[in-house]
Design a protein around this nucleic acid. Structure first.
Length: 595
DNA sequence: GCCGTTTTCGGCCCGACTGTTTTCAGTCG
């Protein structure tokens, strides 16, 4: 039986080859090449096996003729003779060790060789034991301190066998706010900003990066290290420090003075790949970039910038929004002055996915707040319209007649609100429903009930593990039902919980376009679905999106900025999002008939 | 080993911190 290689497995193999080359003291550029190929495969948005089937493996950035040939053999025969050759004679255990923070290829090899640890299985336990027995400190190049650190790292990795979980964006944002507030209470702190993946508004956040503007870096570092929630200091220097908080979150702090603040913001916002690409780009123009500024290689003169705008401007580029800094073509677009003007939270005119407490006797969870409260909130948020879309009444526990009766009552209530409170607030309330897509693609709603609704959200809530073909057909079938305006949380992913289901997106894009429908960007923190890369693909296909909160209580309506952030990361402009349209125009494209 | 808006050859991002060293290699972001 032939092995089905996943992207993660291929990336891990390439990384192992890079490590093997490093131990063998091969050219460091060869090592970097393999490492880059690994990262590139890891970040693919399609399965590498599918690319290979289509003969497109050489289109992967960082994969050239040599690596492509080895991968070809890998997929055809199940293994690559070249990779095997490179790793031959090296202890398999070292490839397990390099997954531990602080242990690189050289250290891993030295440990395995000196301690005679060969097999992968039990490698970590044997390292730990050797450390406890004081054997590591006696090895050349090691000492007591390194032994202690290795023991600690190995022990901790064992505790969290699974990969360290990432935080949801809003959680990380709240935590960062507290740290920033603490830092700003120091007289030496002129400014403090959360940067890194938080500033880029990634869906999940690994650690929190903070930059501080100051003339007294040492004092700021010392002050930071007194933050009450710190559990452990990973490292501390004159201008930076890394710590772990009691909730296991790592926080990295860097300092810079006001004159150099622009380059620090740029450097520490990343992403790493954006920075590398930008530095290579600058290098070709005789410039060398770092957090200290822009250095002219010829003269050695360093240009310091107070703002990020100045930094990019000096490079001859417009300022690039942080959400785009992922080395996904943004530098080229900036150079050609073709960066998109991204949608902003101020553009949003309505929320079309809200669950009120009106009891439709649904199979899924009901909202907590009444319609009037939510309408008032919508007005506060400056919206012109909103739509209530409770889950459909459970079809297993109701007759069609009962369902129609429930939905008739809901229709009357919405009409009443439109005549009273909504009218006063000059806001339109739509009567929608979020309806389950059954495993065969039918919608969980009796035929006659559709007439009672302004629109329907079609969503998958069950049977996530159908094969790609079947899931695609299921969704296509559902989209052809009447009144369906958009597909809710289209991939079904739950961040840090489950992957989305397999779908042929090209076919879904085509169907949605043909039917004049939309795809949702769901702003709920554990969904953020469509994901950013699919937002980008959808837009490239001309598909329009609708950004909603999926609020189940009034406070959730404030989550809209996170949905907008995902859209921005997917290069969405105002015109790509239908609920940026003012009411009349929106009603037309959303096919709502009103008096 | 990869790659091309000065190159199909000759380059390849940049700096901080740590530990074990007497000048630097390894690792990280």
């Amino acid at each position: 039986m032939k092995k089905q290689w996943t992207n993660q497995e291929v990336a891990e193999l390439l990384r192992a080859v890079a490590a093997a080359y490093e131990v063998r003291n091969a050219s460091k550029f060869k090592v970097i090449a393999y490492d880059r190929a690994a990262t590139s495969v890891e970040h693919l948005t399609t399965e590498i096996k599918d690319l290979w089937d289509e003969g497109k493996i050489n289109e992967i950035p960082g994969v050239g003729p040599s690596i492509a040939q080895h991968l070809d053999e890998l997929f055809a025969k199940g293994q690559s003779s070249h990779f095997r050759e490179v790793m031959k004679g090296l202890p398999p255990a070292m490839f397990e060790l390099i997954k531990i923070s602080g242990i690189g290829p050289k250290t891993a090899f030295k440990l395995c060789q000196s301690l005679k640890i060969w097999r992968k299985k039990g490698a970590l336990e044997r390292i730990k034991k050797a450390a406890e027995e004081g054997k590591i400190r006696r090895l050349p190049g090691f000492g007591e301190e390194s032994e202690r650190k290795i023991k600690e790292a190995v022990t901790q990795a064992k505790l969290k066998k699974k990969e360290k979980p990432r935080m949801l964006l809003p959680y990380a944002a709240e935590l960062a706010k507290k740290i920033i507030a603490y830092l700003k209470s120091s007289p030496w702190v002129e400014d403090a900003q959360p940067l890194g993946s938080l500033r880029r508004q990634c869906a999940t956040i690994g650690d929190i990066d903070i930059a501080v503007k100051t003339k007294k870096p040492k004092k700021v570092v010392a002050f930071f290290l007194k933050f009450p929630q710190i559990k452990q200091v990973l490292n501390q220097g004159e201008k930076k420090a890394s710590v772990v908080l009691r909730n296991e979150t790592q926080v990295d702090l860097r300092t810079q003075d006001a004159q150099t603040w622009g380059s620090m913001l740029q450097y520490f916002t990343g992403s790493k790949h954006h920075n590398i690409a930008l530095r290579e780009w600058a290098q070709k123009r005789g410039l060398s970039l770092s957090e200290y500024g822009i250095k002219k290689v010829k003269t050695g003169k360093v240009i310091r910038t107070k703002t990020e705008e100045e930094f990019y401007r000096y490079l001859g580029l417009p300022w690039i929004p942080p959400e785009l800094r992922e080395d996904q073509g943004e530098i080229e677009a900036a150079q050609k002055n073709k960066l998109p003007k991204l949608v902003s939270i101020k553009d949003i005119k309505g929320d079309l996915h809200l669950h009120s407490d009106f009891d439709v006797e649904p199979s899924h969870d009901l909202g907590k707040d009444d319609m009037e409260t939510m309408v008032k909130k919508a007005a506060q948020l400056g919206y012109q319209y909103l739509g209530f879309t409770e889950h459909n009444p459970s079809i297993s526990q109701h007759t069609s007649q009962q369902i129609i009766s429930i939905l008739s009552r809901k229709k009357e209530l919405v009409e009443k609100i439109n005549r009273t409170c909504a009218k006063k607030l000059n806001i339109k309330v739509l009567n929608g429903l979020e309806v389950d897509i059954l495993p065969d693609g039918r919608l969980a709603l009796p035929e006659k009930a559709f007439a009672l609704l302004d629109y329907v959200i079609a969503s998958v809530h069950t049977s996530f593990h159908q094969p790609k073909e079947k899931m695609t057909q299921r969704i296509l079938t559902a989209l052809d039902f009447p009144k369906v305006r958009f597909l809710g949380h289209p991939t079904g992913r739950k961040l840090e919980m489950r992957e989305g289901y397999e779908v042929d997106w090209e076919k879904v894009f085509a169907k949605v376009l043909k039917n004049g429908q939309f795809l949702e960007v769901n702003a709920f923190p554990d969904r953020l679905d469509l994901p950013d890369f699919l937002v980008k693909e959808a837009i490239q296909h001309g598909v329009k999106l609708v950004v909603n909160t999926d609020a189940h209580q009034v406070e959730h309506m404030e989550l809209m900025p996170y949905g907008v952030a995902v859209a921005r990361r997917g290069w969405a402009r105002k015109k790509d999002i239908v609920n940026t349209l003012p009411w009349r125009k929106f009603a037309k494209v959303f096919k709502i008939h009103y008096n």
